[in-house]
Design a protein around this nucleic acid. Structure first.
Lengths: 159, 159
DNA sequence: CGCTACTTGCTACTCATTTGCAAAAAGCAC
DNA sequence: GTGCTTTTTGCAAATGAGTAGCAAGTAGCG
């Protein structure tokens, strides 16, 4: 049995992460996609990541287990995973995209430390932004599809 | 006389723009910086721009009057103008930065049309975001210095 | 095992942005 | 104007993220 409901709160982090990788892989298999070593390694790396990661970072990560991976593969796989709603792209204005697992039920934003480049997640009350988007829709004849909201500053460790 | 107060509301846009370029240049001169042809042309191009512009766009613009400008100069000058709080960078997620004049008294955000790439400005009530940043400051031990908020969607012309 | 379609590696390329250095020119003093 | 000093500029070459085309590899199916 893979869902020990009694100990769920205790297992917390690790349990969520490891099962998450399996779940994601199963979901892809069900959709008819092949589960290759690299696809698996990438999903595991993303699940294990404590922060959004860039393509070069992922390349290095995956290279440790699969020394022959090519960067092209990494980029293609990132596109593939984004297409399949497994991850989302974020931009912290340093010249390259980062990727993190997409939690379908929970849209969040980030606190980017401009000193150490550490990225924390932060939840912003939905209704605030929704109300704003509604206003914009009316005032500007513009249909909002998505938004980017990131905060930059100094984290606790650096201050 | 350059400030015909009686007709100000009529002259509106153009008057504001042309005087703005002179003001910016004077400010730089006062600070002891040299006013070169290219610096001047870049400021004029930025003042004339109706939307945030990219470095390659500016290069083309400035090239029309100064065919020998080098892209390196454009980038260096953009850095210089940003350092001197004359312009700000924005990011519309298409792989390169854009620049627009910084209005010190008026912080705004953008509506980016994902279809035609047109960029509109939009003012977001300050207090909403300020309140949010205050909360974040307390909850996350994080000192917010700036934020990025951009909306993506479909503009009136494209819908 | 063998087939086929999906994946991967490789090489070469695009393109924004940066670096180092030598030549040009703004602004100041005379 | 003539020099002089320092800031700017041009040039050539490099960096680094991301992409394209094509041939070789392999997961998953029967």
């Amino acid at each position: 049995m893979n869902t020990p409901s009694k100990t769920l709160t205790v297992l917390a982090d690790d349990a969520l992460k490891s099962s998450s990788a399996e779940q994601l892989i199963d979901a892809l298999r069900t959709k008819g996609f092949r589960i290759t070593k690299i696809r698996q390694a990438m999903i595991e790396a993303l699940v294990a990541a404590s922060q959004p990661v860039s393509a070069p970072q992922l390349l290095e990560q995956v290279s440790q287990k699969h020394p022959s991976v090519n960067k092209t593969t990494i980029y293609r796989e990132l596109d593939f995973l984004a297409d399949n709603k497994i991850l989302s792209e974020i931009d912290i204005l340093d010249g390259m995209k980062r990727y993190e697992l997409l939690h379908p039920d929970h849209h969040h934003h980030h606190l980017v430390c401009t000193s150490c480049k550490d990225i924390q997640c932060v939840e912003v009350p939905h209704h605030d932004l929704h109300a704003l988007e509604g206003k914009i829709q009316q005032t500007h004849k513009f249909t909002v599809q998505s938004h980017v909201l990131e905060f930059f500053g100094i984290c606790g460790k650096c201050s």
